[in-house]
Simulated assay, not measured.
Amino acid sequence: MSLQEFSLLLVSVIISVAGQFFLKMGAIKLGKVQLGNIFSLIVNMITIPELLLGLACYGIGAIAYILLLTRVNLSVAAPAVSVGYIFSVLLGYFILKEPIPFIRLVGLSFIVTGVILVVWRK
């Protein structure tokens, strides 16, 4: 994977992770969904800026991913975007104060190792 391709991958992943973060922040504002309030909450979704921003980030991330797919094999690009999991866990830990159990760290290390093996060129 060239530096340009890696940069495009990183842009796609970071923007998509930002989308996940904003969707979570919007979901916190939205509150818990119960059977009785599901329709009103769905209508309220369009009034929460974080949800709209999260969806916009997902859209921009998808465009960057499509551009990446014009340059890189799917068998490399699809597993490589899993590095987004690492960024999501870090955002959860540092900003949302979510704990990271040891077993999750082990799982993340497997993801990192797998991505390195997938994108490695001999």
Results as ranks from 00 to 15, higher is better:
residue 30 L to K: 04
residue 47 T to D: 11
residue 73 N to G: 07
residue 9 L to R: 05
residue 95 I to L: 14
residue 2 S to K: 07
residue 2 S to W: 02
residue 110 F to T: 07
residue 84 G to I: 05
residue 118 V to T: 15
residue 98 E to C: 10
residue 24 K to M: 09
residue 45 M to E: 06
residue 119 V to L: 09
residue 59 G to T: 14
residue 71 R to F: 00
residue 45 M to R: 03
residue 97 K to D: 14
residue 74 L to C: 05
residue 49 P to M: 10
residue 83 V to F: 13
residue 104 R to F: 11
residue 17 V to A: 08
residue 112 V to M: 12
residue 34 Q to H: 12
residue 35 L to I: 12
residue 97 K to V: 09
residue 65 Y to N: 13
residue 22 F to Q: 00
residue 54 G to H: 04
residue 46 I to G: 15
residue 54 G to I: 01
residue 122 K to C: 03
residue 59 G to Q: 08
residue 98 E to H: 07
residue 47 T to P: 01
residue 38 I to K: 13
residue 23 L to N: 02
residue 113 T to F: 15
residue 107 G to H: 07
residue 6 F to L: 13
residue 76 V to N: 02
residue 88 S to C: 11
residue 74 L to T: 10
residue 15 I to N: 01
residue 35 L to Y: 10
residue 103 I to R: 09
residue 43 V to W: 14
residue 25 M to R: 15
residue 68 L to K: 00
residue 13 V to H: 02
residue 1 M to F: 08
residue 35 L to T: 13
residue 80 A to N: 04
residue 76 V to Q: 06
residue 109 S to E: 06
residue 79 P to L: 12
residue 72 V to Q: 05
residue 91 L to W: 12
residue 54 G to S: 03
residue 74 L to V: 13
residue 64 A to V: 02
residue 71 R to T: 09
residue 16 S to I: 05
residue 74 L to Q: 06
residue 104 R to K: 15
residue 69 L to D: 06
residue 2 S to Q: 11
residue 19 G to D: 02
residue 68 L to E: 06
residue 102 F to I: 14
residue 6 F to W: 00
residue 63 I to H: 13
residue 42 I to Q: 11
residue 58 Y to R: 04
residue 103 I to S: 10
residue 10 L to N: 06
residue 20 Q to V: 09
residue 96 L to I: 14
residue 66 I to Q: 08
residue 34 Q to Y: 12
residue 35 L to A: 10
residue 46 I to S: 15
residue 54 G to E: 02
residue 25 M to T: 09
residue 29 K to G: 09
residue 12 S to R: 10
residue 102 F to N: 13
residue 26 G to P: 01
residue 84 G to C: 10
residue 41 L to M: 14
residue 72 V to F: 02
residue 70 T to F: 06
residue 22 F to M: 07
residue 78 A to Q: 13
residue 98 E to G: 05
residue 22 F to R: 00
residue 51 L to D: 00
residue 90 L to Q: 09
residue 94 F to W: 15
residue 48 I to M: 04
